[in-house]
């Protein structure tokens, strides 16, 4: 995390000189201390991240695939002659417990066109779907299975 923040600083500056490295070191240390104190960060979460590295990469690819697949259907709906859709609001539960993973799940549901998270409380989700076909099988999404595997590793 420290290295990542430092690389971000260097990338935003665009060139490498002594002053930039020294000031960047101090600023990065400050931000790191802030994350440690206020954002519940610790070295443990870094270790978890590397343990789950394979699953995270797989998750990103699955996410991109799902986005492209459902984008196509949304685009097709938008260009049809007469739009016949049945929007739905679905309430459902998932078995996840980790808060970070729940946030990731909510964000990926919203990122996928056609479905959108309206509200989350603990493990209960409220999702708006553009059409009936998109709301089907929302309880056992691919994301949920992958995230369950990640949670087992933690």
């Amino acid at each position: 995390m420290f290295i990542l923040l430092f690389l971000l600083w260097v990338a935003l500056n665009g060139k490498i000189t002594v002053e930039i490295i020294v000031i960047g070191f101090v600023v990065t240390l400050g931000v790191y201390a802030f994350a440690w104190k206020c954002l519940d960060y610790s070295v443990k979460s870094d270790i978890h991240f590397f343990k789950n590295f394979f699953w995270i990469i797989l998750y990103i690819f699955v996410l991109i695939y799902e986005i492209i697949k459902s984008s196509l259907s949304v685009v097709l709906i938008a260009f049809k002659q007469d739009i016949e859709i049945q929007p739905q609001i679905v309430f459902f539960e998932v078995k996840l417990k980790n808060k970070v993973l729940l946030t990731v799940l909510a964000n990926s549901i919203t990122l996928t066109p056609g479905t959108m998270t309206v509200d989350v409380e603990e493990n209960r989700f409220c999702v708006h779907a553009l059409d009936k076909s998109m709301a089907e099988g929302i309880e056992d999404l691919v994301f949920v299975k992958l995230l369950m595997k990640m949670e087992e590793n933690v």
Binding site: I89, F91, V118, D119, V120, E121, R124, C126
Partner: peptide, 10 residues
Amino acid sequence: DDFKNLKKGL
């Protein structure tokens, strides 16, 4: 803007 109130509202 609470989840249960949202349900009640619906």
